[in-house]
Structure formats: structure tokens, C-alpha cells
Design a protein around this nucleic acid. Structure first.
Length: 404
RNA sequence: GGGAGCGUACCCGAGUGGUCAAAGGGGCCAGACUGUAAAUCUGGUGGCUACGCCUUCGCAGGUUCGAAUCCUGCCGCUCCCA
């Protein structure tokens, strides 16, 4: 096959990228690849530690797909060995749980499945780094460690902070960058993808590659995708993520909660829309832009029809003001005289976790009844309960009474 | 092996004998404002048969009229010296 002109490739590949190190080497590599008609080997590694791939992961994965589309080779590393260490990047404490081999296997399969929604797995190489780390001898490991100083490790923000705070830093965590860097030698990576926090690791890989007589890889680093809270990086443990396997409606709700300020980043990093089009979208009504964004991304992971349905439902249930499209029924045993205290009603319907909570909610004006949302004023108000009565506990929680 | 320190509500973190259901921050929930976004403001954030009562400050005992606070043991965690 023949490769597209280098400038054309670069235009696509540098979109939404924060940093390329060394800057000029990517062009040189693309040039050489085109001349020799050899695809670049583009590495991306993931640790099979959890089960939800979220949009933050898709940023480098999408970049990987772009490389694929240009004819390069995607090399996916399943970090089954590194997963046993746990990536210390950006963490202020060590991961506590140790994964069993079975868990790692299951997670790895699941991960691949999810990755397949972004990249073309049939054309990707997949490796497990346990393949070379498990049989590795101690001498060899020592050799690798001999190129990393403790001072270097401690310059990393995450370790430095922990050290300052007298939080534990385990020795095996220090091996994480070492292992990840060695992966690059094993698969002879020309390019590695990841977030900006990977700089040190990417550079270490170049050192190892040089020692092994290989040309050093180029690091292509994506910006960190901000989570739905609009502040911190998207991450599972921070609870601000949108998982790609989540239900369309769940994704929809989260997308609509994204801060306006982050819209441009989301469009740039998560869609293929050209920059000019993005400009137009975000100068328009932000709400509309969010719907467009959400439909576009959700449509890619589910189907356009499901994305539309989710958007419609959001509009009805949350965005529009009308009644929610789908109101769940909750069973309630009918009181003898048809009356019930407001607090008891909320608690019985499980709209609140306790009666105290119900009491607070009512005090703050959060309990409403019926389609016209007439407020309940006091916690001991006697409510006439009827089958099909609509009960609201705040704006987002509601149900219909089903008398039993 | 020796020494020091820590363990408080969802999380972080004050409190070191009574006025402590326990400051403050984060998160979360509700209300206002909006585009039922974000930001902001206000209130709330153990439970109950609720102007009172019960349970909570690693676990188990003890001292005391009274303990999250003092003592003993246990468990868990961290740092330092060697």
C-alpha cells in the first residue's frame, strides 16, 4: 500500500495533540515510512485493572485509530504484568487491591472488546507484557533498574507529594515506568500514545531503545480530558467519567452536565468534526452544541437511533419541563383511611433513604405531588394517597404510586 | 531490633475530660438563579415513636458523676534510626 503525503498525515495526527517529543522526529519517521513503504508501529498500552473504558481513554485510542486509517500498525499492549503493579501516575496513594490472574484475564478480554469500538482490532497487534516480564530473570530486571535513579523518580509529582505527606511509596510501584518503557523495546515501537503525564516514561523508553540499538520512539501526548465535573481529569475513581459501555441515556445525562467551558475540548478530542465546524457549534447555543456532541459520541458507541432516543428522553425528562416520559411505579400498601403522613410516604416509596432524610427534603421544599407539582409544606401533612399518584422528591427523583 | 506518630461521620481534617451528633473543607442532597449546564447564593448532610430520646469518634475492656478526649490490651497504618 502507499502512504498519504506526510503533511497530510501530520495534519490529521497532530489534531488535538498537546505535545510531541521530540517534536520534529514524527515528521522524519513518517517521511521514512513513506519512502520505505513501511508502516509505523504505534504503541498504546492499557492495564486491565478495571472494567470500564471511559472517554478519557478514547482520546489516545482515537489517535491510534487515525494512525491505523493512515495505514500504520496499531500495537496494543495489555499490561497484565504492569497491572499487578498499578500505575502510580497521578495517584496520591497506592492501589490497594491486588488482582488475581483470573481477574486480569477477564478484564483484558473485556478491555479488548471495548477497545474494538474505537480501533480496528482485526488489524491491530495485541501483546501482553506478561509474555516478556514473567520469564524475565532477576539480572535482567536489575539491568533495567540501573538506568533509573531515585531522584528521577522523586521528581514525579505523584511520588514527590506522597513522600512529602508521609504516604507509602512501594518499591514495586517504582518499577511501573521501567516496565512500561521496556515494553517499547519489546515491540519495537516507533510511536507511543498517551497522556502528557507519561513524558518521563516515554523518554525512559527512548533510552532503553537506544541501548538496544533501536531508533527511539516518538511520544505523542494527548491532553488530559477533563471530567464531567469540569475540573479534574476524567477518571473512574473520581466519579466524573462517561463510560463507553454505559447506557445511552446515562451517557446523555452526563454529557448535558458537561461544563460549557469544556465543549471545545470535547468536540476536538472526541469527534472528527473539523475545527471550523466546531467554532460554529460552540458559538451557537451551548445546550444545542451539547446535544450535538452527545448524539455524535453516543451514536458512535451505540447507534444513531439509540442516541436520538436518549436525547429525546433527556429533553422530555430533564430538559423540557414537561412530565418525564418514563415514570417508574413503586408499590405501596394502601392505608386504611387513604391518608398518610408525608414523611412516611417518601420513606415507604424508598424515594429517600430514611425518614429523617424525608423530613429534611420536605423542609426544604423538595417534595411535590401530582402532575402540577403541588408542594408539600410540612413533614406531618396528611397526604391523600391514590393509585397512580405522582410523587416527587426533588427534581430528579420521582415515582408513581402503585397501591397494593 | 530501637524510637516517634497516627486511626474521628462518604472523603480529607479539627477537637485532647463536660457547653460534642462532634469545627472547617470537599463531595453529595435540596432550594433560588438559569439553558432543570457550569459558576454563584442559601440551607441541609447518623437514626427515631423528634422541642425529646437512642447510636456514633479503629476494636475490647477500665478509671470517672461524666470520655472522641485519660489508662490497659489488641488490631491496622506511617515515618525515622540501625
Amino acid at each position: 500500500m502507499s502512504f498519504a503525503p506526510v503533511d497530510e498525515q501530520l495534519e490529521l495526527l497532530t489534531r488535538g495533540v498537546e505535545k510531541i517529543v521530540p517534536e520534529d522526529e514524527l515528521r522524519a519517521k513518517l517521511q521514512k515510512s513513506r519512502e520505505t513503504n513501511t508502516p509505523l508501529r504505534v504503541k498504546y498500552g492499557i492495564d486491565p485493572t478495571g472494567i470500564d473504558l471511559h472517554l478519557g481513554h478514547t482520546v489516545p485510542l482515537r489517535k491510534l485509530r487515525q494512525f491505523q486509517e493512515l495505514g500504520h500498525t496499531a500495537v496494543l499492549i495489555i499490561g497484565d504484568a504492569t497491572a499487578r503493579v498499578g500505575d502510580p501516575s497521578g495517584r496520591d496513594e497506592a492501589r490497594s487491591k491486588k488482582l488475581t490472574k483470573e481477574q486480569v484475564d477477564a478484564n483484558a478480554a473485556d478491555y479488548l472488546n471495548q477497545c474494538g469500538k474505537v480501533i480496528d482490532l482485526s488489524r491491530a497487534e495485541v501483546h501482553r507484557n506478561g509474555d516478556w516480564f514473567d520469564p524475565m530473570g532477576f539480572g535482567e530486571l536489575l539491568g533495567l533498574c540501573g538506568q533509573v535513579t531515585v531522584a528521577q523518580l522523586l521528581t514525579r509529582d505523584d511520588f514527590a507529594k506522597r513522600y512529602r505527606d508521609e504516604k507509602p511509596i512501594f518499591l514495586h510501584e517504582c518499577l511501573y515506568p521501567v516496565m512500561q518503557a521496556w515494553d517499547s523495546v519489546q515491540i519495537q515501537a516507533n510511536v507511543e500514545l498517551g497522556g502528557t503525564e507519561q513524558l518521563y516514561t516515554f523518554m525512559l523508553a527512548r533510552d532503553y531503545q537506544a541501548n538496544a540499538g533501536q531508533a527511539g520512539q516518538v511520544g505523542v501526548m494527548s491532553p488530559i480530558l477533563v471530567g464531567t465535573d469540569g475540573v479534574k481529569r476524567m477518571g473512574k475513581s473520581l466519579g466524573n467519567y462517561i463510560g463507553i459501555a454505559e447506557e445511552p441515556y446515562e451517557q446523555m445525562k452526563k454529557f448535558m452536565r458537561v461544563s460549557d467551558d469544556n465543549l471545545r475540548d470535547y468536540f476536538t478530542l472526541l469527534t472528527d468534526r473539523p475545527a471550523e465546524e466546531i467554532d460554529v457549534l460552540i458559538t451557537g447555543h451551548p445546550k444545542e452544541a451539547k446535544v450535538t456532541l452527545a448524539k455524535s459520541v453516543i451514536g458512535g458507541y451505540h447507534s444513531p437511533a439509540e442516541a436520538d432516543a436518549a436525547a429525546d428522553r433527556w429533553q422530555k425528562e430533564i430538559g423540557g419541563g414537561g412530565l418525564p416520559a418514563d415514570i417508574p411505579d413503586r408499590p405501596l400498601s394502601a392505608p386504611a383511611d387513604g391518608l398518610m403522613q408525608a414523611v412516611d410516604l417518601l420513606a415507604e416509596l424508598k424515594l429517600t433513604g430514611s425518614k429523617s432524610e424525608a423530613r429534611r427534603l420536605i423542609q426544604q421544599g423538595g417534595m411535590k405531588l401530582g402532575a402540577d407539582k403541588s408542594p408539600v409544606l410540612t413533614h406531618d401533612e396528611q397526604v391523600a394517597v391514590s393509585d397512580g399518584l405522582l410523587v416527587w422528591a426533588g427534581k430528579k427523583k420521582f415515582c408513581r404510586v402503585a397501591l397494593t
